[in-house]
Design a protein around this nucleic acid. Structure first.
Length: 271
DNA sequence: CTTTAGGCCTGACGGC
DNA sequence: TGCCGTCAGGCCTAAA
């Protein structure tokens, strides 16, 4: 499922094909996404030129010389560049026809994604207003985590997956960064020391930049916008490895659900 | 304020 | 073989 690295990979892959292109039309084959795609969106968008494709958390922000768009890929969404001759697939819900003859198709089997008009400036949008700092930005470090964690009884893993704390840390990267930082996912956030948060922040940055540089993780139905698969999966140390041996110490990886989310960890390497 | 539970949705999977 | 229950998972909303 698209986590931040996949979204960033999608953004980088699509941006060169979008800049300066005019949206000839938008076809709503199925407007029933997480929130219904407004029926008047095709009319308000048609004829406008794309100025940028940006990312905030796991949202994609499409800026045009008309209305902006806020896109989210949800659990199973992907954006692909196709020609009109490319056979339509089931769950190709939205089709952007561009003035270079290509199409961008939003494919989302589970329809947890969204496509909404984006007001300017984007930060006023309710979905973006309360988001925490970007994990790869200057506002994110161990002291930030330490400061916000005071008084928090929730598990540190749930804490770093809270989008108000830091954005873009999904289940995979939370599990992996906690392993690399040697911290058990179930510990109360307030019990994690300043120094440990420093290491955790470092590992969150490392694991996310790694995944981005390698083109994103492939899990189940995620496919890059150009149809190729990412290849981060073989680097996972704990996520999805329950019952297998820790790559560091050979202890069997355990899985203990935290707030209904699978949470894999090494009982030896993580304390 | 924090924390938890529910809901959205489809495909993969396991059991029968 | 096919049917069906269960689960995954981001993230919002409502409730505790």
């Amino acid at each position: 499922m698209p986590e931040l690295p996949e979204v960033e990979t999608t953004r980088r892959g699509l941006e060169p094909h979008l800049l300066g292109r005019k949206i000839l039309r938008l076809t709503l084959r199925d407007a029933r996404l997480r929130w219904p795609v407004p029926g008047d969106l095709p009319a308000t968008l048609a004829g406008h030129r794309i100025l940028s494709l940006q990312r905030r958390a796991k949202y994609l922000l499409l800026e045009t010389d008309g209305p902006g768009l806020l896109l989210h890929l949800g659990m199973s969404g992907s954006l692909r560049r196709c020609t009109p001759e490319t056979p339509l697939r089931t769950h190709d819900h939205l089709i952007f026809a561009l003035d270079d003859g290509f199409e961008i198709r939003l494919h989302d089997p589970r329809r947890f994604g969204c496509c909404l008009p984006l007001p300017m400036p984007p930060t006023v949008h309710p979905l973006l207003a309360a988001l925490g700092p970007e994990p790869l930005g200057d506002d994110f470090d161990g002291d930030h985590l330490h400061r916000l964690s005071r008084g928090r009884r929730a598990a540190v893993k749930a804490f770093i997956m809270d989008q108000r704390v830091v954005v873009g840390v999904g289940n995979i990267y939370a599990s992996e960064s906690l392993f690399l930082a040697g911290i058990r996912p179930g510990r109360a956030a307030r019990r994690v020391s300043r120094g440990e948060y420093g290491e955790l922040a470092t590992q969150i940055r490392a694991v996310l930049s790694d995944a981005i540089s390698q083109g994103g993780t492939t899990l189940r139905d995620f496919v890059h916008e150009d149809g190729s698969h990412g290849y981060f999966r073989q680097h996972l140390r704990v996520y999805g490895r329950e019952g297998q041996c820790c790559t560091t110490c050979s202890t069997m990886i355990r899985n203990r659900p935290i707030g209904n989310r699978a949470s894999a960890y090494c009982p030896t390497c993580q304390r």
